[in-house]
């Protein structure tokens, strides 16, 4: 059988498994997502990751936290919920960080993650929008990214938690800063003698 036919056979076989939703005939049950913890345990992990990472940034920066947010995980060609959700939280740094300091900031964070034994899974070295991803084990991840105008976001999350059946399992959180028109405004405005210059 040629390459094309093999690929077609493979796709059809997968189609049958995913559409039928059965796990017989070769589906790997290991690949089905199962919750690694409940939302409360995930929250503790997320807080530890964000707080640890933030402390590693010296001099200290100011920040605003978004709500803990749960997003349903789905699977199969029909894209149906698999009973787990991804729980995550964003921490927006409100201190202005000059482009010349991006390297220093990312370096501090990356060194801290490595010292904790996390695995660096991805590094984006774009000059304006750099980012680093790390995994801390148990499906727990942490991430830093810089937006186009220089805003910095730290995120931490747990990939598969027991579905808390609500989008914001720990409430809507503290309101984030808004601009004159009432739109959310994450533009950093706090000046720091070191980071902002």
């Amino acid at each position: 059988m040629n390459h094309r036919a093999l690929r077609a056979v493979a796709a059809l076989a997968v189609t049958a498994l995913l559409v039928g939703g059965c796990s017989s005939a070769g589906a790997d049950p290991e690949k089905k997502r199962t919750p690694s913890m409940d939302a409360s345990a995930a929250r503790t992990k997320i807080d530890a990751l964000l707080d640890g990472t933030t402390k590693a940034i010296v001099p200290a920066v100011q920040f605003s936290d978004d709500a803990y947010t749960s997003s349903e995980n789905t699977e199969g060609m029909n894209d149906r919920p698999d009973g787990t959700t991804h729980l995550s939280k964003n921490r927006y740094v409100m201190t202005k960080v000059a482009q010349a300091k991006y390297g220093a900031l990312l370096g501090l964070v990356e060194r801290y993650w490595k010292s904790q034994g996390y695995t660096i899974t991805s590094v984006n070295s774009d000059d304006r929008m750099p980012a680093i991803d790390a995994q801390a084990g148990d499906g727990v991840g942490v991430h830093i990214q810089i937006g186009f105008p220089g805003n910095v976001t730290l995120s931490a999350g747990v990939g598969a938690v027991e579905d808390p059946q609500t989008r914001y399992p720990f409430g809507p959180g503290t309101p984030l800063p808004t601009d004159a028109k009432g739109n959310q405004d994450l533009m950093p405005k706090v000046d720091d003698p070191f980071w902002s210059h």
């Binding site: 995913l18 997003s71 699977e75 984006n124 991840g141 942490v142 747990v158």
Partner: peptide, 28 residues
């Protein structure tokens, strides 16, 4: 991704999720 759920992972977040760079690229 994995056969079981990679069709669904394009919005999955990098932080602990399984979508890799996908969501960040969508945001850009």
């Amino acid at each position: 991704g994995e056969w079981q759920h990679s069709h669904s992972d394009y919005w999955n977040q990098d932080s602990g999720g399984s979508g890799g760079n996908s969501l960040r690229n969508l945001g850009s």
